[in-house]
């Protein structure tokens, strides 16, 4: 009960009780761009849709997301194994992709199966 009350107070003042990194800039489900701050990725590569941010380098991405050479350069969650992508829901896997930046080795990111 105490935790619920504390969460209610935090939520009311714009803070989050959740440990999830999902936000309007990266990770939220979406149907259209208006669901996100910038871009909504749709299709079988992005199950349930995913908000993301355009990028040229990893520094353009929130948190520890990586800038991948897909859709003109988008941020995706980095991973080392599939279980790390389960928070996105079903249909996601940990897949090797080419980074947007040249001269950088392929990286593992959460991507549709």
């Amino acid at each position: 009960m105490l935790r619920l009350g504390a969460c209610a107070l935090l939520l009311a003042f714009g803070l989050s009780c959740s440990s999830s990194d999902v936000s309007r800039s990266l990770g939220a489900q979406c149907d259209s761009r208006s669901d996100c701050d910038e871009r909504c990725l749709r299709g079988e590569d992005y199950p349930d849709g995913m908000c993301t941010t355009s990028c040229e380098t990893d520094r353009d991405c929130p948190g520890e997301a990586r800038c991948i050479d897909e859709e003109g350069g988008v941020c995706l969650y980095r991973c080392q194994e599939r279980v790390q992508c389960e928070f996105l829901g079903g249909g996601w896997d940990c897949t090797e992709k080419s980074p947007r930046e040249d001269d950088v080795e392929d990286v593992l990111v959460c991507f549709g199966q």
């Binding site: 999830s20 309007r24 939220a28 979406c30 349930d48």
Partner: peptide, 9 residues
């Protein structure tokens, strides 16, 4: 805008 749907919708 500041609302979004999390991965549980």
């Amino acid at each position: 805008a500041a609302c979004f749907r999390d991965r549980q919708s």
